[in-house]
Write a protein that binds this DNA or RNA. Structure first.
Lengths: 196, 196
DNA sequence: GTCTTTCCAATACAACTGCAATGCAAACGC
DNA sequence: GCGTTTGCATTGCAGTTGTATTGGAAAGAC
């Protein structure tokens, strides 16, 4: 067994390049050679690590999900232990919104994959467990009278804000104001609690 | 001036075919020849009516917007004059959600174009006025205490529900329940008014 | 040393892409 | 009639696509 290389590191390197290409020019521009060029490697090497393009796409999709999971974890951990629910929710959602540079790039890639998965059911299947898990988590943070529908609504709101941010229909400020308004709706009027 | 044909009808015919291809296989599968085949015409004819692919895409994008506008109009007109605001909002949003067959197909196309426009600013520009106009309209329908943020939130919620519906994360029933929960939040608890 | 397995670069190939060019038929103005 | 303009089908072309194949260099196993 010669020439040991970190197999998974190579694949992540390639997936990163793919995401860069997709963020800048869309998934349609993702080809073996483009990705290879963006990664600074030969096309043959890409082929060595991904026997087929579908395989590469599937790996990149899972890499996208890993990234957003990491984004969540980082935001939550920065809050310390036992943060107030409303602040936790706001931080968590804000961390997932495409508000600035790198978050926007990730958001563009995620949006591209959403459209990609919408016409490829087998690819979309891997996305489902993540959101249902999120719904449960969010539902646990909402104050009493609210059920699972409010949690779903909050996440759908997040998704929609993301779309509008990427489309340029909303500025980051507007998106955050909208998010805060929704949180007001869920947690009660602004001055009514100390969680603001 | 010989052989008069309805120029615009041809272009709509082609755009319809494009949307069918995009709904089934995504925008990446949209090529001159595929679209021509789906429309049952020759590739040369497509070229005759659209000098370039970008031109064809731009026309199809505007056709998508026309469709959703027509969808809104049909839903609103079916309600008759002076419907209660809450019912009007619910009807309007439900009409735009990809809940069943043809609405889902249109939704997939719309999602594809959203991702398309996210990496092509000049294409996305045409989408902006529509939503800002919608925000104003929705804001006018909401009861007193609510401002533009709530209108934006409602539309973002709609967008997010659409994404989740297309991704299979939500069933139509769940999406509608979520929408109703949000309307409860905005219009007051279920039994408090007669608008339910 | 040699062997053998892994890594990767290069090339080849058929299929497809958008687009330009060509040619012809239909139909209206005259 | 005739000419001219429009509608469209066909073909050609250069470039790109995904994938298969080939070949060789590097490095552990022996």
């Amino acid at each position: 067994m010669p020439k040991i290389v970190d197999h998974d590191a190579r694949r992540r390197l390639i997936a990163d390049a793919l995401m860069r290409v997709a963020a800048e020019q869309g998934l349609e521009a993702v080809s073996l050679r483009h990705v290879a060029a963006a990664a600074g490697v030969s096309a043959g090497m890409v082929q060595h690590y991904f026997h087929t393009k579908d395989e590469m796409m599937a790996f990149a999709l899972s890499a996208v999900m890993d990234r957003s999971e990491a984004r969540i974890r980082a935001a939550v951990e920065a809050l310390g232990a036992d943060p107030p629910p409303r602040l936790l929710l706001r931080t968590l959602i804000a961390a997932l919104l495409p508000l600035e540079g790198t978050a926007m790039a990730d958001g563009r890639v995620a949006l591209a994959f959403l459209a990609y998965a919408a016409v490829r059911p087998e690819a979309g299947q891997s996305l489902r467990p993540g959101t249902s898990q999120m719904v449960d988590f969010v539902a646990g943070l909402l104050p009493e009278p609210h059920g699972a529908e409010s949690a779903t609504a909050l996440l759908a709101l997040m998704e929609g804000l993301g779309v509008y941010l990427l489309g340029g229909q909303l500025t980051p400020d507007q998106a955050l104001a909208t998010l805060d308004a929704q949180l007001d709706l869920l947690f009660g009027p602004p001055g009514a609690t100390l969680t603001r």
